[in-house]
Computed example of a mutant assay.
Amino acid sequence: MSCIRFNTPAQRAQLAALAPSMLTPEEVAAQHPAPPVTDSKIRRLRALASDANPKIRASAASSYHLPDDVAATLAHDPDAEVRGWLARNETVSCDLLRELAHDETEAVRAFVAINYYAPEDAMSELADDPSATVRRLVAWKASLRDTVSA
């Protein structure tokens, strides 16, 4: 006996009509607004970015509210994990992503490759990266874009 259920078109239509309506992302955000970004939050991010512990600096690098000058400093952090978190951050400038695309550490370049906002010229360079992993990630991301546009 099969456990797969096949609904008729009429049954699917009835189920769809009875389903609760879904909120759009904008409606959800309106119901649950994020706290405002204050000067004190920016001061805390600056302090975290200069902490001696690389895990703390990595946490700062992941913040969507990271000031540009702090991001530029963290792009040259001696710890690859910090640079990796910066490379994943979707609010980092295209110029910094271009710079991180040339990072000595494969993982940092890989995170640039999967960052949705990485500029096309950086992606073209990463497509020829010495690392097979980075090249595969570039190809994977391109296949997603091709799937969405089809």
Rank of each mutant, 00 (worst) to 15 (best):
M1T: 04
I4P: 00
I4K: 15
R5I: 15
R5S: 04
P9N: 14
P9K: 11
P9D: 15
R12D: 13
Q14P: 00
Q14S: 13
L15V: 14
L15T: 11
A16G: 12
A17Y: 10
A17T: 12
M22K: 09
M22Y: 05
P25H: 01
E27N: 10
Q31S: 14
P33R: 10
P33H: 10
P35M: 10
V37H: 04
D39T: 11
I42G: 11
R43E: 08
A47R: 15
A49Y: 06
D51Y: 01
D51G: 00
A52Y: 00
S62H: 14
H65D: 15
P67R: 05
D68T: 05
L74V: 05
A75N: 06
H76S: 09
D77W: 06
D77L: 09
D77C: 09
A80G: 15
R83W: 04
W85E: 03
L86W: 07
E90S: 10
T91M: 11
S93V: 07
L96A: 09
L96P: 14
L96S: 09
T105H: 05
T105A: 12
V108Y: 02
A110T: 07
F111K: 04
F111G: 00
V112C: 02
V112K: 05
N115E: 08
E120R: 12
D121Q: 02
A122V: 12
S124A: 13
S124Y: 00
L126A: 08
D128G: 10
D128H: 10
D129S: 11
P130F: 10
R135H: 02
V138E: 12
V138Q: 03
V138N: 09
A142G: 01
L144W: 09
R145A: 08
T147N: 11
V148T: 13
